[in-house]
Design a protein around this nucleic acid. Structure first.
Length: 415
RNA sequence: CAGAGGUUAGCUUAAUUGGUAAAGCAUACGGUUCGGGACCGUAAGACUGCUGGUUCAAGUCCAGUACCUCUGACCA
């Protein structure tokens, strides 16, 4: 991509009413546009990051047998009445509207009910199970107060997966596989060391649900961390009994602020009973399907990444989620030789399938280009200029030193 | 939902006891620079969120309203 073609622009200022550092940086660098409180548009750079994160999640979900679908944003009232979650008293984040004929509809803040209702059409026998489905969807939640930039919006992208199993045992097996898959996701996006499997309130059916909490001051949760055992306990369930059960002592725990990037929980047969989601077992008897639900906040994850990976100059994307791998800066482009060299490096890298953002602007100063590159935060910076002559300059965003490399070495580095 | 603060040019801000809106950034044009957001000049850009009131006169005071932010509550 040529920078000169990119419509989004970096700026020195950010809207003064934006306090969270993730939104400040993302707006300054041109990744997102704030439409209103809690609703952000994703610009070309931002969308690429979202898609990178989605792809990593997609691969890991497919690995454990997930099948991708996409449900509707419009939802039926009767469905949610069956599980007693239509009432605003019960669920306070509903956006509701009505069809022209007066039929009430809700905008999806979650999809357990509609997906499970749909599944009644496809689940009849034990032979149909298990089924694991997931989707990436824009969830709409009428939050009383949006905050923390893209970390808590009224509109956000979430990956939600649902598992349908015959027995508790089969369900548990998949549940555990999902924990591993989730840990892989967070490892791959660069948050492995900062993200902990967290024991949280399980609700009616199980003792615990599991959250995936990433350490960050921008988070809204407080958890107690056991670094050695690589686990954490949400403060909401921190009791003597729970600590004994998990084999940890109070004085081994470290209190930290975290952001919840993932959450998985078991519904057991409860929701299936409410919705009438049953299957016929081998012995001919009808049994409720065992249901599990697994979420990852995609856009929140992006916000957490920015909170964690940035310095005073801008964002420092982990390579796996960066919008581009290489930020190619051409200086002195009015010089025909330099221009040709920069163009050729751009073309070669593109042919090598290296994702490259080429700053080919003629009207921007060197300082401006460097400042923009630091702000945008692409992992590798390559400079071609009069000064680099037949060579190129290669710099890692996270490091301060750059080095001179020959073009052969450069291309070799990105093979 | 409660409390507090705010809304002036595309963005960030200024405007004295009420006296008729100013600057920086960004933009356009010209020039000087040319490896860390460099500089000079010119131009364009605002019925001061909206509605009403007080006043000879309102960005400024009053009332209402919309929206934004912060703190808390909420967050399956």
């Amino acid at each position: 991509m040529r920078y000169s073609q990119l419509f989004s622009k970096t700026s020195r200022d950010f809207p003064k009413d934006e306090v969270s550092s993730n939104a400040q940086l993302l707006i300054k660098a041109g990744y997102i546009y704030k439409e209103m409180a809690g609703a952000y548009a994703y610009l070309p750079l931002g969308l690429r990051v979202v898609e990178k994160i989605k792809q990593i999640v997609r691969e890991e979900m497919n690995n454990i047998g997930g099948q991708e679908i996409i449900m509707t944003a419009l939802q039926r009232k009767e469905l949610w009445e069956k599980t007693d979650r239509w009432d605003d008293e019960k669920v306070d984040v509903w956006f509701k509207s009505a069809l022209k004929n007066g039929t009430e509809v809700g905008f999806g803040w979650s999809h357990e009910e509609p997906i499970s209702e749909m599944m009644k059409n496809y689940i009849n026998s034990y032979k149909d199970l298990p089924i694991y489905v997931y989707q990436f969807q824009t969830k709409l939640r009428n939050e009383l107060r949006a905050k923390s930039g893209i970390m808590r919006g009224r509109e956000f992208v979430m990956k939600d997966m649902y598992s349908y199993s015959t027995t508790e045992e089969a369900h548990q097996k998949f549940y555990d596989a999902t924990i591993d898959a989730y840990l892989k996701v967070f490892e791959r996006v660069g948050l492995g060391d900062l993200t902990f499997l967290t024991f949280a309130s399980g609700g009616a059916f199980t003792q615990f649900s599991h959250e995936f909490q990433t350490i960050t001051e921008a988070g809204e949760d407080t958890v107690y961390l056991h670094r050695e055992k690589k686990l954490a306990i949400n403060e909401e369930v921190l009791t003597e009994e729970v600590m004994n059960q998990l084999g940890v002592k109070k004085d081994e725990l470290e209190q930290v602020k975290t952001a919840e990037v993932g959450n998985i929980f078991s519904f057991g047969p409860t929701k299936s009973n409410q919705l009438g989601l049953n299957y016929v077992d081998e012995d001919g008897s009808s049994k409720p399907v065992i249901l599990g639900s697994y979420g990852i906040g995609i856009t929140r994850l992006m916000g957490v990444l920015v909170e964690r990976f940035a310095d005073e100059k801008g964002i420092i994307w982990p390579e796996a989620v960066a919008p581009y791998k290489v930020h190619l800066i051409g200086l002195n482009l009015e010089d025909e030789n330099v221009k040709q060299k920069a163009e050729s490096v751009y073309q070669v890298l593109k042919k090598m399938n290296v994702e490259v953002l080429f700053d080919d602007r003629l009207d921007a100063s060197a300082g401006e280009k460097f400042a923009d590159a630091d702000l945008i935060g692409i992992p590798y910076r390559v400079v071609i200029s009069k000064r680099t002559a037949e060579k190129a300059e290669l710099k890692v965003r996270a490091e301060s030193k750059s080095k001179e490399v020959s073009l052969e070495e450069l291309f070799e580095a990105f093979k």
